[in-house]
Amino acid sequence: MNLTIKGIATAALALLLSYSYSAKQAVALPQKINHPVTIAKSQPLTDTLIVPGERVGPITPTTTKQDLIKLFGASHLVDKTISGAEGIGSFAATELKLSQGRSLLVVWSDNTRTKPLDVRNLGSAWKTREGIGVGISLNELRKKLGNFKLYGLGWDYGGTILLDSSKLSRYQGKLILRVDGAANASEKFPNDYQAVSGDGTFSSSNSHWKPLGIRLTEIIVTLNPSEQ
């Protein structure tokens, strides 16, 4: 009889230990499954469309720094302070570092980083519906904009396109496009370079642009123009 009771007790203990072990496994298993989910907070960026005045991909006039963290992950963001045009003033900014031409810089209205003034330093992956993106040539721009006027090279506003003189005048105040010549253009073609330099305006059909290798080098998308 004692042997039978002992056997029953041993079996019960074994069952209890087995249940306890299984319970620990049941608790631990979800932790292992959920662990990658807590790390992978950001999603790959697939939307690289520029809609002037409205959005740059998922970045809109109401996007905050915290929204950027949720969208892309804190490891891809670097806070900076940049100078204004002609060195006047300074602005809080956040750089988004992504591969394959998707990087950009968000400039904020103040240090709270809760309202974006504009988005700039856009990589080559970003394009408008018209196909305007960094790197396209002056000839390609003329196909999309028609003949237009732009400021001369060699100063703070050099190469800025006057959109109100183009087919895309509706983007005036919402989009800033700037062009520049090839790195050695001023040395190789000094006469042509000087002929289209300075704070005057020039036609995009001016023959002096042709040898300079003019391309679109900067896009700035204004999101909250009233804040500037």
Rank of each mutant, 00 (worst) to 15 (best):
62 T>G: 06
214 I>Q: 02
20 S>A: 15
192 D>E: 15
30 P>I: 08
89 G>V: 09
104 L>T: 15
70 K>S: 15
193 Y>R: 02
6 K>M: 10
91 F>G: 00
28 A>H: 04
41 K>C: 06
197 S>Q: 07
166 S>Q: 06
137 S>N: 03
224 N>Y: 07
227 E>P: 03
158 G>R: 05
12 A>E: 10
115 K>T: 13
38 T>R: 12
123 G>W: 00
153 L>S: 04
90 S>R: 11
170 R>M: 07
102 R>K: 15
72 F>E: 13
100 Q>R: 10
9 A>E: 11
30 P>G: 08
77 L>A: 10
162 L>T: 09
176 I>D: 09
163 L>F: 05
61 P>N: 05
142 R>N: 11
122 L>E: 10
60 T>H: 09
23 A>D: 11
51 V>Q: 12
172 Q>R: 09
16 L>G: 13
146 G>M: 03
110 D>A: 06
61 P>A: 08
225 P>S: 01
181 G>S: 05
120 R>Y: 00
59 I>D: 10
63 T>S: 15
62 T>M: 08
139 N>A: 14
41 K>G: 07
86 E>A: 10
58 P>V: 05
171 Y>W: 11
11 A>M: 10
77 L>Q: 11
85 A>K: 07
125 A>N: 01
73 G>Y: 04
110 D>C: 08
70 K>F: 03
128 T>Q: 02
215 R>Q: 04
98 L>I: 00
12 A>P: 04
30 P>H: 12
133 G>D: 01
188 K>Q: 12
95 E>F: 11
226 S>H: 11
17 L>G: 12
212 L>R: 07
16 L>I: 15
120 R>Q: 14
148 F>D: 04
213 G>L: 02
124 S>N: 06
60 T>P: 05
108 W>R: 09
35 H>A: 15
81 T>V: 15
80 K>L: 13
117 L>R: 11
64 T>I: 10
228 Q>I: 04
215 R>H: 03
41 K>S: 14
207 S>F: 00
11 A>W: 15
83 S>I: 12
125 A>S: 13
51 V>G: 00
90 S>F: 09
113 R>C: 01
176 I>M: 12
58 P>N: 14
88 I>M: 06
189 F>W: 12
42 S>P: 04
72 F>G: 12
2 N>S: 11
93 A>H: 06
139 N>K: 12
128 T>W: 03
198 G>Y: 03
65 K>F: 06
127 K>C: 01
200 G>T: 13
57 G>S: 09
203 S>A: 09
99 S>E: 14
20 S>F: 05
71 L>A: 13
124 S>W: 01
107 V>P: 10
76 H>N: 15
105 L>E: 11
225 P>T: 05
220 I>M: 09
